[in-house]
Simulated scan of single mutants.
Amino acid sequence: MKGLLERLEFLKNSDSITEKAYTICRKTIQKFVSENEADQYRMLIIHLAMALTRIERKQELIPPPTDIMMGVYRSPKMEEARGRVAWINQLLNNSLPEEEKEFLYLHFVNVLSA
């Protein structure tokens, strides 16, 4: 877990992610990531940090491929993934764009299925 938190700190200090993205990612780690799962969550947390930064900086958002998402939506882990994304969405003042929700569903389904 230490490595994941250090990576976030590095991204924040290098201005690659915003303070808000950093804070939400730390809260997400505290809520969902156990010490022995940190490596599995690395891609999800980094994607979340970058996605929240793109949203804040009003950068272009690109959705994941439709064929990949079809499989994600059929996953038995999708309901739990939706709940986790909804929790993250509540931390924001604005709603997550659908493109970013889909990427987070993808990442959560992958982590929860591992």
Rank of each mutant, 00 (worst) to 15 (best):
M1S: 13
M1C: 09
M1N: 04
G3F: 13
L4R: 00
L5H: 06
L5F: 12
L5G: 04
E6I: 12
E9R: 14
F10V: 14
F10H: 09
N13D: 07
S14Q: 12
S14P: 04
S14T: 15
S14A: 11
D15C: 10
I17T: 08
T18P: 00
T18A: 02
E19M: 14
E19T: 06
E19W: 04
Y22R: 06
Y22F: 15
I24K: 03
I24Y: 04
C25N: 05
R26P: 02
K27P: 04
K27C: 05
T28P: 04
T28Q: 08
I29P: 05
I29R: 09
I29S: 07
Q30W: 13
Q30S: 14
Q30Y: 11
F32Y: 15
F32Q: 01
V33A: 10
V33N: 10
E35L: 12
E35P: 02
E35Y: 12
N36K: 15
E37Q: 06
A38G: 02
D39W: 11
D39G: 14
Q40T: 11
Q40L: 15
Q40P: 07
Q40M: 09
Y41A: 09
Y41D: 08
Y41Q: 07
M43R: 07
L44F: 07
I45W: 02
I45Y: 04
H47L: 10
H47E: 10
L48T: 03
M50V: 14
A51T: 03
A51E: 01
R54P: 11
R54L: 08
I55P: 08
E56C: 07
E56W: 00
E56A: 11
E56H: 03
R57G: 10
R57E: 14
E60S: 14
E60Q: 13
I62F: 11
I62K: 14
I62R: 14
P63S: 13
P64Q: 05
P64I: 04
P64D: 03
P65E: 11
T66W: 15
D67Y: 11
I68C: 07
M69A: 05
V72Y: 02
V72N: 03
V72D: 00
Y73K: 12
Y73I: 05
R74F: 03
P76M: 02
K77E: 00
K77A: 00
K77G: 00
K77V: 00
M78D: 10
M78T: 06
M78L: 14
E79P: 03
A81S: 05
A81H: 04
R82D: 11
R82A: 08
G83R: 06
G83N: 12
V85H: 06
W87I: 05
I88Q: 11
N89L: 03
Q90D: 14
Q90G: 12
Q90A: 10
S95R: 07
S95F: 09
S95C: 10
S95M: 12
L96W: 00
L96C: 06
L96E: 01
P97H: 08
E98P: 08
E98T: 12
K101C: 01
L104I: 01
L104N: 00
Y105P: 04
H107L: 03
H107C: 02
F108G: 00
F108K: 00
V109I: 08
N110S: 12
N110G: 11
N110M: 06
N110R: 14
N110Q: 12
V111A: 01
V111F: 00
V111L: 01
L112Q: 00
L112C: 03
S113E: 13
S113A: 15
S113H: 11
A114Y: 08
A114K: 09
